[in-house]
């Protein structure tokens, strides 16, 4: 069975976010890039299940190859980089759908959302392009014989879904317990694994980002003495008018 795992190349979660060009472009100076935390869980879980041929894929320029190599070091079999600027979600989804068709894969796993644009749309769009079903925000994932059993959170509860291949799913919290950390052998082997570069497929840009806005500085926190909790209740009622 062949699985395609989308790997996001995103700023480290602790990064201080800054912009250039009149706040329209992300400032990548001094930024450490990592595999998206949800994609890391996706790959970890598929490696735990075992017996799968796993290809990691990214739509991006040359600098994303270090991130793909990290995924190979974790244990993916090979990698594909679609050589293009990832202009919007629809464009990225189109590329992955095409890679999926060419490679005859059985499933695609993405992260629940990227931690930069927080779209959470690529999985559903891939499913749309391929005309297959998708299960988003999966919190548990098992493969049992020729089916997958997937748990996902819904409003006020959770749902257990049985999915026949092929399908798309996106990994959320719980998909794997903790991300796998590559060992030295994995890192050495990753250097020799195949990383294929493919040209992009055509897809018109549908959306674009404009100006970014940093949050306004918050007024200073109003402190209340620990032995005067009544004052907090009064402030919440009379000043904040929230209770």
């Amino acid at each position: 069975m062949k699985a395609l795992v989308c790997i996001g190349h995103v700023p480290d979660t602790t990064s201080k976010i800054k912009f250039t060009n009149n706040n329209t472009k992300f400032d990548s100076t001094d930024i450490q890039y990592i595999i998206g935390p949800y994609e890391e869980l996706a790959l970890t879980r598929l490696l735990e299940i075992g017996g799968l041929h796993i290809t990691v894929v990214n739509v991006g320029q040359k600098e994303t190859e270090t991130t793909l190599r990290k995924a190979l070091a974790m244990g993916a079999n090979d990698a594909v980089r679609v050589d293009a600027e990832p202009t919007d979600a629809m464009f990225v989804a189109k590329q992955i759908a095409e890679v999926f068709k060419i490679g005859n894969y059985d499933l695609v796993v993405t992260g629940k959302e990227s931690i930069d644009y927080n779209g959470g749309q690529v999985d559903g769009m891939i499913a749309g392009f391929l005309d297959i079903d998708s299960v988003s925000g999966a919190s548990k994932f098992e493969i049992i014989n020729d089916k997958a059993v997937i748990e996902r959170e819904i409003d006020g509860g959770r749902e257990i879904i049985e999915a026949k291949f092929p399908f798309v799913t996106s990994a959320g919290k719980g998909f794997a317990h903790e991300p796998k950390i590559p060992n030295m052998r994995g890192i050495m082997m990753a250097r020799r694994k195949k990383l294929k570069i493919m040209p992009a497929f055509e897809q018109e840009q549908a959306t674009k980002t404009g100006t970014f806005y940093l949050p306004d500085a918050k007024p200073k926190c109003k402190m209340v003495q620990a032995d005067n909790v009544q004052e907090l209740v009064t402030l919440l009622h009379e000043e904040a008018k929230i209770i």
Partner: peptide, 16 residues
């Protein structure tokens, strides 16, 4: 307007 960078900022988002 939507959030980006996990709620650290917001951004103008244009649909064409």
């Amino acid at each position: 307007r939507k959030k980006a960078y996990s709620g650290k900022v917001t951004v103008d988002f244009v649909i064409s």
